[in-house]
Amino acid sequence: MGDVGQSTANTSNKEMTSNQDELILAQQRQIEKEISESIPLVGELEPVTSLSSEYSGDDIYLAKVNDLAAKYSSMRRTRPDGNCFFRAFTYATLERLLGNKEEFNSFYKLAENSKNVLVELGFQQFTLEDFYDTYMDVLKRLADIDNVDDARRELHTVFNEQGYSDYMVVYLRLLTSAQLQKEKDFYSCFIEGERTVADFCHQEVEPMYKDSDHIHIMAACSALNTGVRVLYMDRGTGNIVTQHDLPEGCTPTVHLLYRPSHYDILYV
């Protein structure tokens, strides 16, 4: 714990009063509140072409939306709260598994054993248990529903209840952190600067609302034994969206749309 960053207050600019801090934080909170009131944690299915309305008059993006629409029929938006990758990835993984009992069962077994792995890595058992219990509780509830459509509706309900949804996000963050730490020799090459893999996990993976990068995705894929294809849509040149499979060479079962600092779910 001694390696935790410590510091001094942001008072270097003496002309500003500290009330400036309060104003900035109050504004941040207001923005967060507006986002949470307008965008559900995980949205309903909608056609990919609905993206066009966001980019009217923007030829680069419109061309890319067209390209995307040729490859994917529909999408689900997720709330841009910094947890979007983890929420989208877990939702899409489970949604697919609900249609395949056998795969769901092996996923369930993997999840069941994951607590011991985390405890062995030094996570505190009693804080961990909260998240593990909720995670398993959700998986059990889904497993008990025979009809696939009913199970998917339940998944959607659960993921839009903050109390459950955020617990699922925390648990996947912890599993991702564990994966990074288990294979720290490999992942350390992807971390810039002096930080150790453990520091990186404490600062960028385990805290809520911190955005995900390539390294988070690689570790999360590995933790859930799932391949993902990410479609990148940005202002870069060309009329097509570039795609990237993680881990490389996998057969992706989850498809995500990436727009600068945000992930949504895509459906073929």
Binding site: G2, Q6, S7, Q124, T127, F131, R173, H202, Q203, M208
Partner: peptide
């Protein structure tokens, strides 16, 4: 007031009162 990153930016729901105490002792 204490300037310690796990009390704000680096807080995680997997931390605890005990983890905070250990961190302050170590600081």
């Amino acid at each position: 007031h204490i300037c310690l990153s796990i009390l704000t930016d680096d807080w995680s729901p997997a931390l605890s009162v005990q983890a905070v105490c250990l961190s302050i002792v170590s600081m």
